[in-house]
Amino acid sequence: MRNFAVCMIVAVGCSTFGCTPTLAGPDHSWDILIFTQHWPNTVCMEWKEKLKQHTCILPRIKNSWTVHGIWPTKLGTIGPQFCNHSLHFDPEKLQPIRGKLEQEWLNVYNGTTTSLWKHEWKKHGTCAVTLPALDNETKYFGQGLAWIEKYNMENVLARAGINPDTKGYSPQQVWDAVHGALGKTPAVECVRDSETGNWFLAEIRICFDKNLTLTDCDGIKRDDASIKTNCPSEKLVIYPGKVPVFQQEDTDRTTWLLSALRVIQWLQWITL
């Protein structure tokens, strides 16, 4: 009896020949789903800022927000991620919805058409499959399409008078617009242009419970803020109507013109 009692502490079960301890695997449990839409003009700006030669793919329909991902998330932390390496990505399974995905869930970074989908499936979709409503590629990506059709941030913001242009809006205005339309707490993400110091609206995140019902994003990472945002409360954020042109690009163009002018002047001098 003493041996059996000890074994129950260290293992799930015992065999005739004794007990074999079982090590607990990584915790892949999660509480809510974060549905993230991003603003392609800002995404492209950030991509080009890393390297000016970078090119982007923008939606065919102007002013369309696009899906970044559906992220199963444990409250108070980030993740889980990459939950099942045996669930390989198969783009053929997405053929029935591929046309819509290429418009609504496109890869702004000008990579291969499926590279973003593969990344999102491996990192997040393999964790979402524990929910029957999302237990395969078609369901997972199809749910993203259904949600962006119903909760497209272009429409949500426009109803509050927030439209793409060079005018700045306070983070509170953006947050209030989403909260007012949906009745749930969102999260708003911005990025900063290192050249100008300006802040740009980048992503809006809304949350769903395991019944795929809208819920508050309270408890997701960044829960120390009075409103869920990384945007500076004291500054206006730009919701750009087109991809911003960088100051660095202007500087490079000026440098090139000056170099060309020097060459012309040198050629004129040697022909005198």
Rank of each mutant, 00 (worst) to 15 (best):
R2V: 11
A11Y: 10
S15I: 07
S15A: 03
T16L: 08
T16R: 01
G18F: 03
T22E: 15
W30M: 04
D31L: 09
I32K: 12
F35D: 09
W39M: 09
W39V: 08
E49D: 14
T66H: 04
W71F: 15
K74W: 09
P91G: 01
L94D: 02
E102T: 09
W105H: 05
N110C: 06
L116S: 00
W117C: 07
H124E: 05
P132N: 00
N136W: 10
E137A: 05
K139R: 11
G142R: 02
A146H: 09
W147Q: 11
I148N: 05
Y151H: 15
N155R: 15
A160Q: 02
I162W: 11
Y169C: 08
Q173E: 13
R192F: 01
S194H: 10
E195S: 06
T196M: 04
I204D: 07
I206C: 00
N211T: 01
T213F: 02
L214C: 03
T215K: 00
D216V: 10
K221Q: 09
R222Y: 12
K228N: 12
K228D: 01
N230Y: 05
P232H: 13
S233M: 11
E234Y: 11
L236Y: 06
I238Q: 02
D250W: 07
T251H: 13
L257A: 08
L258Q: 06
A260C: 08
L267I: 09
T271G: 00
T271P: 00
